[in-house]
Every structure is written in C-alpha cells, then in structure tokens.
Amino acid sequence: MTPKALVKQWIELFNQGHADSLAALYHDDAVNHQVTQDPVVGREAIREMFAREFAEADMTCIPEQILEDGEWAILEWKDPLGLRGCGFFHIQDDKIKFQRGYWDKLSFLRMHNLPIPQA
C-alpha cells in the first residue's frame, strides 16, 4: 500500500471514530507526536489516545491535500469548524512508524468547549 493510500484509510477510520481500527494502522513501537502535546509511544498508547480524544470531541478530518514522497505522506486538513492543520506520516512495511501533527490546540479547545489548561 502506498503512503498516500494508507493516509486515505487513516482519514476514513478517523472520521468513523474507530480507535481500535485506527491503532491497527500503526507499528507496535510507533510514535505519534502532535506538537501541542508530548509524544505518544506504542500502538496501545496511541489507541488509548484516540479513544480518549474521540470521547471528548466530535472530530472530522477533511483532507485538502495529500502529498507523497518516498515513505512519507503529508496531509493538509481542515475540519467543519474551521480548524486547519497538517500531518506528516512515515510509513514502513504498510504501517505508520511515525506521525507528527501541527494544529492550534487553543482554537481546538475553544471550538469544542473543552477546558483550557492553566499555566
């Protein structure tokens, strides 16, 4: 499977809120680093992260562009509330080995009426 095809599958599962199926796309020792948070290491920890986040907010990923370069796919996305971001996926052996995402966490929290952490 090409990196682009895997990211398209990731988007489909993300939009369905399937934490278990989504986590199955990752290597056992994968890293998911959303730069607004600490890196999450390991498939099970990534599954738990998605399950927790799907329970907290109704999230939808609308792809604007998916680019591919070798083992990498780059996703530029938006959501129905106006949030925008991008993600970088390193794909090895048809699984996500590393993911990094960039988006505005403060805007996300406000849009979903979630608590804003105090410093």
Rank of each mutant, 00 (worst) to 15 (best):
R43K: 14
L22Q: 06
A5R: 02
A55F: 10
T36S: 04
T2K: 11
I62L: 14
A19V: 04
A119P: 09
K8Y: 07
R47G: 03
L75R: 02
L6W: 06
H27E: 12
F50R: 01
R43C: 05
K105N: 15
L81D: 04
V31K: 03
Q118T: 15
A51F: 09
I96K: 05
E76C: 08
D38K: 11
G70E: 14
E56R: 13
P115D: 12
W77F: 01
I91G: 02
D94R: 14
G82Q: 09
N113A: 15
E56A: 10
A5G: 01
T60G: 11
E44V: 06
D104N: 13
Q99H: 10
P3M: 01
V7P: 01
A5F: 02
M59C: 14
Y102E: 05
L109M: 11
Q99E: 11
A5T: 10
A30P: 02
F98V: 06
H27Y: 08
C86L: 13
M1W: 04
F108Y: 13
K8C: 07
R47T: 04
D38W: 06
I62M: 13
A51H: 07
E68F: 05
F108Q: 10
Q65N: 09
W103R: 09
I62R: 14
P117I: 07
F54H: 08
R47L: 05
A5C: 02
L25N: 02
C61M: 12
D94N: 15
T36Y: 00
D29R: 13
L75K: 05
L81C: 05
I11Y: 04
A119L: 14
P3D: 01
P63L: 08
V7M: 08
K95V: 13
D104Q: 08
T36C: 04
D58T: 07
A30M: 03
D69Y: 12
D29H: 13
F88D: 09
I96Q: 04
D28L: 09
D79K: 14
I96W: 04
Q99T: 11
E48L: 11
A45Y: 11
D94F: 14
T60V: 15
